[in-house]
Nucleic acid binder design. Structure first.
Lengths: 209, 209, 209, 209
DNA sequence: GATGAATGAGTCTTCATTCAT
DNA sequence: GATGAATGAAGACTCATTCAT
């Protein structure tokens, strides 16, 4: 009964839990939460499906865990950004870069967050929507600050603009996800970042002389 | 021996079919396709449950019908707009107005189209994605034309900009749908339209002198 | 309100009824009673399916009608044969010929009688099995008489032999029905008749000298 | 880390599977495949009905399994018999004895094989009919050999005679199954065996002097 | 008589969840 | 902790039958 076996067990258990989350993220991304059977997750994780219930009360709770553990990181990044003393343009550039990079490295996670969390009536119903909307706050603050220091138009509705910014991110990432926007090399993504930044900050119109 | 009984029967049958589609749109919007039982649709339509199967092979096919019959109208409007000889700014204004108006009058339809069609991996998997993407074409054309006649920046990627425009529309409508963007009176919506048009065309930045 | 319209209607009605029976025989033969939907019968008969219920209380009753109207004819033939003063060999020859001919001209009817009546637990459960077994009687009598007049072995169990005779008929007809016994021309069928007669009367063994 | 838990689980699983097959054989025999609900099988097997679906994809597959596992045994017996160097008469005697014995000990299995496999259009449609007809081959060979060594009439059509033999078996067994041929004691069955052998080999006719 | 829209009971099938081993 | 057999609620779908027109 030394502490070690427990520790080992705990460590192993934690690894199993993490494996389940990773496996769930993959299959949720591919088939949606509803279209995924617990058995699919277990199979992907290489464990017996009964074991999933040692770590999570039910399927829904796996999604909740994904949300709890990843969304917080995401919001934390946004909060950091909102606190960093940079120009509005610089901040927006970083924001866009963050989204594109996250998609590139964790496309499945991004897909799940977009489809099953941000968009899911069911998820929003059964969870504290505040946590979801927490991602909106720092962006709104960034915009509001930009307005205060004159970088952003004075007449801009910061709340609405926040939706615009997030909508742009979501749709472009969705284009990546479903493959209708095909980008292969680093350069193509970089070009998109510049385009998006220009679009959001300067609009589509030809600048008046 | 007149054709009337048939005609009457057909008319009645057509009305039932239409009722099912309307009922399905409502409950799909509220609970999602997966969360909706065929019994819910029938109840909402005020008919017996089995009758749904006289008109549609299965639940999925109801969604397909909603898509087939409404998306085409939507695309038709976009195509019309793309053919109308107006300035780019005017066209974009009409486009945004159309979305806001459609949401205001057919919020459920809009919700279903956004959540269950545009965003559904499952739907996109099992249908001809071309029909969905048909909505992108006229918008891309409008942008490309604007670029040709100098209203739109020459360096703009028209395809990417199309995703931006649609992403903005989707997210703002989603805000309306879930109630996180509360707009009550006509005026509030009108203000949003102006804001969105300005955002898309002129960007968030304070115009350089 | 002359008698004629009624008469015409009645005649027409009778024809519709007959058509339903014919159509049912066809589809029952192909798919079995259980595998057949009332709609299939109506479609085959070229009528609306509701009309079936003007003529028959339910699907089962159509089978009952087929049985009642055709089995009686069959039994009547057997009874006739049992009354005709012919040698045992001649009678058996006619019996076999009758089966083969009936199959050739009314394969579907034969199939239904074999599969859905003679063999169906359900049918035998819900009907007076006596009527079915009525077909066994005349054959048993023919055999018993043959035994009396010395044409048939004295030690033969007439009841068991009846089953043998009917079993032979059924299996060979089944071979025809499913196509594992392929017979095309008249001659092939005639040869089978001779073979079957020889088999039943003289057995398979080489005659002892 | 031993293989035992798996082995135990497998053994248990195998027993459940076997139980389902036995239960299904019983209820299929009584009510037919169509008339049987999966719930009936589960109830008879004393298990929850969902468990049936852990072992079989659907109801049809249970029948397929019964067929696959039992028909092969049956054919194997016939093949053995066809290889055993015995006289034709002896072989036919054993064949008939085998059928009667099998019926006496596994009446339900025999019923299902006769009603739901041999006779079912649906079954024959959806399966490889070759496997069913495999039972015909050894019998045909036994007959053909008998003809070669002079025990069987030279002019006998071996294929047709095979149908006759199987038809006899089927109908007599059906008589047992539905109770129209009542046999209670061992002796009665033994007498039937003798009668059938005599009938098939020597025919019904009084032997010519 | 004729039509086919409408009804709803009966089943199959899936799969999240429990639990004995 | 790990396994996967077992459970059974939930819901999709079929189709015989009724009935208004």
């Amino acid at each position: 009964m030394s502490a070690r076996p427990v520790a080992r067990a705990t460590r192993r258990s934690a690894r199993t839990r993490e494996r389940i989350i990773e496996a769930a993220t993959e299959v949720f991304a591919r088939r949606g939460v509803h279209g995924t059977r617990v058995a699919d997750i277990a199979e992907r994780a290489g464990i017996a499906y009964g074991l999933v219930y040692h770590h999570f009360r039910n399927k829904e709770e796996i999604l909740t865990a994904i949300f709890a553990e990843r969304w917080a990181q995401y919001v934390a990044y946004l909060e950091d950004l909102a606190r960093t003393p940079l120009s509005f343009r610089e901040r927006m550039g970083r924001l866009i870069h963050f989204w594109v990079e996250t998609y590139r490295h964790e496309a499945d996670l991004m897909t799940v967050m977009i489809n099953e969390i941000t968009r899911s009536y069911e998820f929003l119903e059964s969870h504290d929507i505040t946590a979801v909307l927490a991602a909106f706050d720092p962006i709104e603050r960034i915009i509001a600050e930009g307005r205060l220091n004159g970088e952003v138009r004075a007449d801009l509705d910061a709340q609405l603009a926040t939706y615009v910014v997030l909508g742009v991110a979501e749709m472009v990432l969705t284009g990546y996800v479903i493959g209708s926007l095909q980008r292969i090399d680093q350069e193509a993504f970089a070009r998109d970042e510049q385009q998006l930044l220009a679009l959001l900050l300067d609009g589509m119109s030809t600048p008046r002389p």
